[in-house]
Design a protein around this nucleic acid. Sequence first.
DNA 1: AGAGTTGTTCAAGC
DNA 2: AGCTTGAACAACTC
Length: 260
Amino acid sequence: MPEGHTIHAAARAHSLILTGNVIDVSSPQGRFRSGAARLNGQTCVSVEAYGKNLLYRFGNEKVLRVHLGLFGRIRSYNSSFFEARDTVRVRFSEKSNVIDITGPTICKLLRKAEVQNLINRIGPDPLRDDADPERVFSRISKSRASIGKLIMDQSIISGIGNIYRTELLWRQSIHPNISGRSLLRFQLEGLWYDAKYLLRIGAKRNSIITNDAAIQNGKKLEESVNIFGKSSCPKCSGNVNQIAINGRKVFVCDVCQPFI
DNA sequence: AGAGTTGTTCAAGC
DNA sequence: AGCTTGAACAACTC
């Protein structure tokens, strides 16, 4: 049952107008159809990120939660004459600027209480000023699970994905299979502050850059990372092993990241 | 054309 | 309870 919500918003800070149907993604029919929406003129007052969640707040206190998941994309066009492809779930538009969102795993209007629940259940986000790293340290220190798993658990720390996981652990010389509770304080701090550093660069450049030497000019991912997808370690030239954690590839240098 | 992918969530079982 | 695994889902690229 497609439950369509119609929104028309002008985002002050981002100067966008959202027109179109915002529909729970669980509806297979939930897709944007040009001209299908009747607008109700709600103003988008802010756009905010909590980890990988984007929250678009509207003047009527409603909040649009967008999570791009693995396949979701946000594309912008300079012409409103670009017809939305039929996979578009939300279109923001203003004059000749258009932003389309496709493939989000979550794209849903939340009530106030649901927003609070969401914020409460996701871990501190290194990109946020209000994030408390002690919450992260204490969770990791209590867990027997591997740091490779914990660091990508969005309820413990939010924002880190598969590539940052590999790169962070390599940069901090920590083997992914070491259990969380055996990490030392300086290692926890190393991971947190490096995550902050790398994610800031990523947000600024709109690209994953973890190699200090990489000056990113539209280069490929492989030139911007250290060992993700690589077969040899840039530090010691040794062999890089590929392991799987929760079915995702993780790359490790057993020399630089000793499994103590 | 088929494989691969920068992710989450739920359910079930140990 | 904490942890693990598997499945489902998404849309596009090469």
